[in-house]
Each structure stands twice: as structure tokens, then as C-alpha cells.
Amino acid sequence: MAAPAGSSASGALHVVVISPEETIFEGDAEAVVAPAWDGEVGILLGHAPMMAVLGSGNVRVTRGGVVERFHVEGGFLQVVDNVVTVLSERAETAA
């Protein structure tokens, strides 16, 4: 299933940000930057499957030139088939 980049690039990245209480964000985006445990990771369309532990900081979701920020503390990030899942115990929309 480790498809090379671009093979399933049918449209956009699907991004989901989830906290224990609720789904904070769900939608399509062009790019995601997340604070991984050892520095930021950027994810674009066609990224290989990945799982990463998150540190604390802002997840930035870019869509149509607009950047949306979500503050997370801990948790992890998963990328599979152009679906980016951010799971964090403390996640909220950042101002």
C-alpha cells in the first residue's frame, strides 16, 4: 500500500483534527504543517503513509491561500491515502 507520491492524487488532502471531545476541523486542504516531536513536518498531496508523535504548537492547515491554525499539545498525526488525521488530547482552534 506504500503507493509512491502522486498515484492517488485525485484532488486535495483531506484533513481531520480531533480532540477527545469533538472533531474540531474536517475539510480539504492543500498543505498541512504540524509540530512533530522533533520539529515541524509539512504534508502535501501524495505524502507517503506516516505516523508521527506531536509536540506542542500550532497545526497549520492551508486551503485556498487561507491558513487555519489549531493549537495542539501532544497526540499524534497519521497520513494515509491523502487523509491527514491529527489526534490530540488538547486541541483547539487557535486565534
Binding site: 500500500m1 512533530a36 505516523m51 508521527a52 499524534f76 494515509v80
Partner: peptide, 28 residues
């Protein structure tokens, strides 16, 4: 399973972080 993930930092380290979340979540 059978998805070949890039694991940052490692499966062990990720599980170490996630397992407590799982316990907390079952109580929640």
C-alpha cells in the same frame, strides 16, 4: 495492518505515547 508507515520516531515510542491516551479515553 499492512500499511508501510514512516514512523516518527518509532513504533515503540508512538505506542508509549498512545497507550495512556487509550486508557484515559476509555474512562472518558
Amino acid at each position: 495492518r499492512a500499511i508501510d508507515y514512516i514512523l516518527e520516531p518509532s513504533a515503540d515510542a508512538i505506542l508509549e505515547k498512545i497507550l495512556p491516551l487509550y486508557v484515559r479515553n476509555s474512562v472518558y
